[in-house]
Design a protein around this nucleic acid. Structure first.
Lengths: 221, 221
DNA sequence: TAAATTATTTTGACTACTCAAAATAGCGCA
DNA sequence: TGCGCTATTTTGAGTAGTCAAAATAATTTA
């Protein structure tokens, strides 16, 4: 049984490789886990010995099938717990991430399955992040973000890819939740700004970086 | 913030001193925690240094007010989680103890309060064990057990003071749950047996040891 | 009262994880 | 071709918790 430290390493490798690149650097991993780079290297060597990851020295690290299975299971627990905390316990959207971070390591598969049923087998968590299936399938879909989508098109928010309380609170206060609709009225790349308009006719400016964290799909598809 | 190891030590000291004796021996504590006695001694010395316990060398250990507060909080989490697992997730009465043992260390006060409200502020868990209040009051009440109560009196089970899956399954199968009614028809102390009759008119023999773990109160009070 | 039994404590060692700081490798660039 | 920058790895050391086994204290028994 992997320790919760091991689970965290594997989960973060999965998250960091989500977008695309197959090799996660020690630097990125160390930042994600809030440890110094040397610690990450040491730990990764141990995880490689135990068959959870493949380590290309000085290149980066990737998950083995075994490691990926563990990581997906942890991610499933994390996202189902978040959904439970928001949907059933009515907790604040922005603060459940830290809670789930703890709970994901101590919840059994039995409890998880019952939670899943209680919630009606949700496909995504409250932030729009896809929940891996029991058998470890992660429904990964490539969406445009507010930084890359077409201008002046009606859009629906499908996902917020950022877990910090501050960002989520900002999103919440400005009605930028999964399901909300809006249009991007313009972009000023030199200034690094995007301007949007939500259905409540409110205009809002956003940095391109922040806009990149809000994923959308065209409204009528 | 005490580690989950520390929380476990404190919780078990509280449980072992519940009945009465103020000093818990290293031997008993080591058995409860499944460690060797030397480990318990070492750990207790550290806990004493940190102000959680008072250690009388070669006599035993007791909780300081600080330690007791921590222990009660853990016990509250444990029992509320058990109640949630049984009442909401409909899990098996006999198996929730092990689950709660993990969850009790990773649940926040915020989540706990909401769970408490969801459950309707229960006074006891599914086994009849009293749930400490938020402010750390433990409603400890002395009940008779099937080993000590009067014979041929109608009784109601209020509590099962044993958490092993096997015992709880046995109790479940024989309708010995909190709330069930029965009478003790006789006792044979030399043989170490008690005979009882449940409302379903079934007769059953039980060791005195087992009988001592089932606490009861007289039916009409 | 002394010997024997039993419980507790001490000692030395090990695992898992971490950091600080020095050593090394790979890279871009002149 | 070699210099310097940056990321990575290595080294040495520390913390938390654990065990095995030897040492010590207390209690029982004779």
């Amino acid at each position: 049984m992997p320790s919760s430290t091991v689970e965290n390493y594997l989960k973060h490798i999965l998250l960091l490789s989500e977008g695309a690149q197959d090799l996660v650097s020690m630097g990125d991993l160390a930042v994600a886990l809030a440890v110094v780079p040397g610690t990450a290297t040491t730990m990764i060597k141990a995880l490689a010995r135990e068959g959870y990851v493949a380590h290309q020295p000085r290149q980066g690290v990737s998950l083995t099938p075994t490691g990926r299975t563990v990581a997906l299971s942890v991610l499933r627990k994390h996202r189902l717990v978040e959904t439970f905390l928001v949907n059933v316990l009515k907790m604040d959207w922005a603060s459940v991430h830290a809670e789930a971070e703890q709970l994901e390591h101590s919840i059994s598969d039995e409890v998880l399955d019952r939670l899943d049923a209680l919630l009606g087998y949700p496909a995504t968590d409250p932030h729009g992040d896809p929940i891996p299936s029991r058998k470890g399938k992660l429904n990964f879909q490539v969406y445009a973000s507010l930084a890359t989508c077409a201008l002046k098109q009606p859009l629906r928010i499908v996902r917020i890819t950022e877990q910090t309380t501050e960002f989520l609170q900002f999103a919440d206060q400005n009605h930028l939740l999964p399901g909300s609709t809006l249009i991007v009225t313009g972009r000023n790349l030199p200034a690094g700004l995007a301007t949007i308009k939500t259905t409540g006719t409110r205009a809002l400016a956003l940095s391109i970086t922040a806009a990149g964290k809000i994923l959308v799909e065209p409204l009528r598809r």
